[in-house]
Amino acid sequence: MNTVLHAAPPQGLLLDLDGTLVDTRGDFQQALQRMLAQLPAPYASFVVELEQVEHLVGKGTEHLVRSLLAQVQRSHGLHTLEESMVQQALQAYMAHYPHINGHYSTVYAGVQAGLQRCQQQGLPMACVTNKPERFARDLLQAKGLLGYFQLVVGGDTVARKKPDPMPLLHACSTLGWAPARTWMVGDSSNDVVAARAAGCPVLLVPYGYNHGESVQSAGADAYIDTLEQLPLAAP
């Protein structure tokens, strides 16, 4: 664990969702598998593995679906991905996801205790994720986490997703927080890039996805093993 963070105590926290608060690989796997089953060959027979999901998540629903379809095509020597197929797949995915959201996912160890600690110290929190806002709210509600957050910013709440800084700046503006006093807590380089552009200090947990790459290479200000280890006291 590395919790060296040369920043003032936070005014508020922005927390990522998938890979930071909840392990949602199982949800994604199920939704994608059911999506593919509605598509023609060769998509319908493709088996989605958890490792594939881990490498693809983090940049929003459309990126997830497009990337998986491209993988299926490459595995069959195909090169042209028709836009009509992408739209058909997205429609199927969005239809299936609400029915499995939260059913194949688990809250990471230390998350509940970490959020409770922040709440007890009077530190306000917002969830900033690339998951569509309604799915994010439903998942947080299902896992008993929604009540910790003053605001949920999803991938469709504003015009651009992380790694663009817009979702972070929207949260700060809405809640009246100064970005320099607002910590972003996530699991990937996506969170680091967005936080840097927004002017927020950024901490990462090591157990998330980070597009299949080592989180230590993402260049965060600090790394913590669990949310229980957030260095909230003044240095």
Rank of each mutant, 00 (worst) to 15 (best):
Q141L: 10
P163S: 00
A178I: 03
G155Y: 12
S105K: 03
Y97T: 03
Q29M: 12
L50S: 13
M166N: 06
L169M: 05
E213W: 05
P167C: 01
R160C: 11
T129F: 06
D16I: 01
Q119P: 00
N101I: 07
E228L: 11
G147S: 11
T226W: 06
P206Q: 07
P201G: 09
P40E: 08
G58T: 10
K143L: 02
P201K: 02
N190W: 02
L115P: 14
Q11W: 01
G26C: 04
L168Y: 10
M166E: 15
R137K: 14
P40T: 03
G208C: 08
R25F: 03
G154N: 11
A178K: 14
D27H: 11
Q216P: 01
R181S: 06
E51S: 14
R25V: 15
M125V: 06
D16A: 01
K161M: 14
V65W: 07
L169G: 00
E54A: 15
D191M: 01
V22L: 06
Q88Y: 00
P167E: 11
A95V: 05
V205N: 13
L145D: 04
T129R: 09
L14F: 13
G77E: 14
G199H: 13
V152A: 07
I224M: 09
T80G: 01
T3D: 06
Y43G: 08
N2C: 04
L146S: 07
A222Y: 08
A198T: 15
P42C: 11
L140T: 04
D16T: 10
T182C: 14
I224N: 05
L39H: 10
P231W: 10
L175A: 09
Y223T: 09
Q73R: 09
V215W: 13
T61N: 06
G19D: 14
L203T: 09
Q120Y: 00
A197F: 03
S173D: 14
D225K: 11
Q91K: 12
P132S: 11
A95S: 09
L145Q: 06
T157Y: 12
M94R: 15
A41N: 02
Y223Q: 13
Q11L: 04
V185M: 01
L139H: 03
L169N: 09
T80D: 12
P179C: 13
A95Q: 12
S67E: 15
A70H: 08
G110Y: 05
V215I: 13
L168R: 07
Q88V: 08
V107S: 03
G19P: 13
A198Q: 06
A126K: 05
P124N: 13
Y223D: 11
M166L: 14
R117A: 15
S105W: 10
G199I: 10
A37Y: 02
P167I: 01
E82S: 15
A234G: 01
